[in-house]
């Protein structure tokens, strides 16, 4: 391998590490307590998307309008379920930033595996870092052959 290739590979790896791990300034607001009433029905959560800031206290009041449903929050690994007509609560501190799927955890019918919602905590840095890495990957793909 020629020295220029070493430099090329090292340069792009370093840039990739910088994009992936450089701490970014995230505006910190005073933590708040958010209460969301989430209705689960017919393979859908309403609302299907919830946004909070990192550090906020989040309470999800889960209800069901048809059959027994559950809610499992990816990343936080928290779970609750609720019977039709009843309300069950889940309270947690949103201490991990990013976008997290929540999904039904109780078999509720054919589309059960696809009954999915989304919790966004603060800015979704993984998406921005991923986009940065994608641009870097595209440049690396082109650049390599001009060395």
């Amino acid at each position: 391998m020629r020295p220029s290739k070493y430099i090329f590979i090292s340069g792009f790896l370093l840039a990739g590490l910088l994009v992936a791990f450089t701490p970014l300034p995230v505006p910190r607001n005073e933590p708040m307590h958010h209460i969301f009433h989430v209705d689960s029905r017919s393979f859908a959560f309403t609302p299907a998307e919830i946004k909070v800031d990192r550090g906020d206290l989040v309470t999800i009041e889960l209800t069901s309008s048809d059959v027994v449903h559950g809610l499992y929050l990816d990343g936080y690994e928290l779970e609750i379920s609720t019977d039709p007509g009843q309300t069950n609560q889940l309270t947690f501190t949103a201490d991990r930033a990013g976008s997290f799927r929540f999904r039904c955890s109780v078999t509720c019918g054919d589309l059960h595996p696809f009954m999915i919602g989304k919790l966004q905590v603060g800015p979704n840095l993984l998406l921005w870092r991923g986009a940065g890495l994608a641009i870097l990957a595209a440049l690396a793909g082109v650049w390599k052959f001009h060395q």
Partner: peptide, 16 residues
Amino acid sequence: TIVLTGGLFWAARKSQ
């Protein structure tokens, strides 16, 4: 994220 960016690098390399 790793898989998708890896795929893009692979595709870009092929295209070039």
